[in-house]
């Protein structure tokens, strides 16, 4: 077991954002967190990378108490792609990626040839080597996101926390980024907005609603028309796609007569 969360609770002021969450991630798994807006997906992740600190509960990472580790030690084990990707200052793409090396650095350490190689490889992996000298400020949203992924690659951790990494990206970038993360072969816990994406890439899924884990299991177990209706209030049709072998969800909007569809509950 790589990551084990037990009874984690966190409140913003009086409002309970997550309530008694239990969750675990095993070595090599790709685990998805899904749920409606405001269900607490981001809050769970933020409590893990310590942007927030939980009111209650324990988090064990590789057998150790995660919160007892120094920030630096934690950053050597856990790579994070958050939603905060604007840098209002003037940096080159390669400088942003090189920041992923900082947890490996002591005071007075300068970037070595090895660091530069790691940064170059990370950019090559994402097909961004030509943009190394471009100004990060002037990139498009999809390009920025790829740079941030390159940064987490340069960080060289084998566990990634991703907070809706493909938000606001067009479909080619969404697939590209998830494909890339999958190819890294690392353990992943990711909040995912799009259920079809979750079905394509996740080994297991946790469903959050109102700050509680209400469902857990493989995509096939979790993504059923009844569950989707219970959680999102949307009617849908589920099939296993012959090409991918994965669950594919077709939504049946009211306007198209979805309410009358035979397979819905």
């Amino acid at each position: 077991m790589r990551l084990q969360i037990e009874n984690m609770t966190f409140s913003y002021g009086d409002r309970k954002a997550i309530d008694d969450i239990c969750l675990n991630v095993k070595e090599g798994e790709f685990v998805g967190l899904i749920g409606p807006n405001g269900s607490g997906k981001s809050t769970v992740l933020k409590n893990l990378y310590r942007a927030l600190s939980p009111d209650k509960g324990t988090v064990t990472f590789d057998g150790e108490n995660l919160f007892a580790l120094s920030h630096k030690k934690a950053a050597l084990k856990l790579g994070v792609v958050g939603q905060e990707n604007d840098v209002p200052f003037d940096f080159l793409v390669e400088e942003i990626v090189a920041m992923g090396r900082s947890p490996h650095k002591k005071f007075f350490d300068f970037d070595t040839e090895q660091d530069k190689n790691i940064v170059r490889h990370a950019l090559e992996h994402l097909g961004m080597e030509a943009m190394a000298k471009r100004n990060y400020l002037h990139l498009s949203g999809g390009e920025k996101q790829r740079v941030i992924i390159a940064r987490v690659v340069a960080q060289e951790t084998d566990f990634l926390l991703l907070d809706e990494p493909t938000n606001h990206l067009d479909i080619s970038y969404q697939l590209q980024i998830f494909d890339f993360v999958k190819r890294l072969g690392v353990t992943v816990l990711s909040a995912i907005h799009d259920l079809n994406m979750a079905a394509l890439y996740c080994d297991r899924i946790y469903v959050l609603k109102d700050g509680k884990v209400i469902l857990r299991g493989t995509p096939e177990e979790v993504l059923t028309p009844r569950n989707i209706f219970d959680v999102y209030g949307v009617r849908s049709d589920i099939s296993v796609h012959p090409a991918t072998g994965k669950v594919a969800i077709t939504y049946l909007p009211e306007a198209l007569g979805g309410a009358k569809h035979s397979t819905t509950p």
Binding site: Y49, R50, H71, A75, L78, G79, V80, G82, M99, S102
Partner: peptide
């Protein structure tokens, strides 16, 4: 948040 996640 990013700074914290990168060990600061």
């Amino acid at each position: 948040e990013s700074a914290g996640a990168l060990g600061v």
